[in-house]
Simulated assay, not measured.
Amino acid sequence: MRWHPYGYGGQRRDPEQVKRDGWNEQGLLAVAIDDDRLTWPERELVRHLGEKLYGKRPAGQVVRRG
């Protein structure tokens, strides 16, 4: 018999599923500023919200998608 503690083993959810679950279950929204599904005005809105809540990003900051 194999026993794994909760959170170990099994299938890992892909990052998009984690984001989707966070939105549906807790009302949390995780958005990449360079998400291709967003239009330019939507990306600007995300950038403005991020700056309002967390401050400006350091100059020269590279956006990485994983």
Score class of each variant (00 low, 15 high):
62 V>I: 15
20 R>S: 11
5 P>E: 11
39 T>M: 01
3 W>R: 08
46 V>S: 02
21 D>F: 09
65 R>P: 00
54 Y>F: 14
58 P>F: 10
50 G>V: 02
54 Y>S: 05
57 R>M: 10
17 Q>W: 15
39 T>R: 02
4 H>Y: 15
31 V>G: 03
40 W>C: 00
55 G>M: 06
7 G>T: 02
62 V>Y: 03
36 D>E: 14
66 G>E: 11
64 R>G: 03
2 R>L: 08
26 Q>T: 06
8 Y>C: 05
27 G>K: 05
54 Y>H: 15
13 R>K: 13
64 R>S: 05
65 R>N: 09
39 T>I: 01
48 H>G: 01
1 M>T: 08
38 L>V: 00
2 R>P: 15
16 E>M: 14
63 V>Q: 11
24 N>G: 02
27 G>Q: 04
15 P>C: 08
56 K>C: 03
56 K>W: 08
49 L>C: 10
13 R>G: 02
44 E>R: 07
11 Q>N: 05
33 I>Q: 10
22 G>C: 13
54 Y>A: 11
26 Q>H: 08
7 G>P: 04
54 Y>G: 04
60 G>T: 06
33 I>G: 13
50 G>C: 08
50 G>S: 10
65 R>G: 08
16 E>A: 14
17 Q>S: 12
18 V>Y: 08
4 H>Q: 10
66 G>P: 13
48 H>N: 15
6 Y>P: 04
60 G>W: 08
56 K>T: 06
28 L>A: 03
26 Q>P: 01
41 P>M: 00
6 Y>I: 12
21 D>W: 11
8 Y>K: 09
5 P>I: 02
1 M>H: 05
57 R>H: 07
59 A>R: 13
55 G>D: 07
44 E>Y: 02
23 W>M: 04
38 L>N: 01
47 R>K: 12
21 D>N: 09
4 H>N: 14
4 H>D: 12
56 K>R: 10
47 R>M: 12
35 D>R: 11
3 W>V: 15
4 H>P: 00
25 E>I: 06
61 Q>M: 12
42 E>W: 00
36 D>M: 14
10 G>V: 01
1 M>Q: 09
5 P>F: 07
26 Q>S: 10
37 R>W: 07
50 G>E: 11
24 N>Q: 08
23 W>I: 02
7 G>W: 06
49 L>S: 05
46 V>H: 00
15 P>L: 09
40 W>H: 03
10 G>K: 09
31 V>A: 13
55 G>F: 06
44 E>S: 06
2 R>A: 04
36 D>C: 03
49 L>K: 08
58 P>A: 15
40 W>Q: 03
13 R>L: 14
33 I>P: 00
24 N>C: 04
17 Q>G: 05
38 L>A: 00
56 K>P: 07
55 G>V: 03
34 D>K: 15
14 D>R: 11
8 Y>D: 06
65 R>L: 12
30 A>K: 05
43 R>V: 00
45 L>T: 05
14 D>F: 12
50 G>N: 14
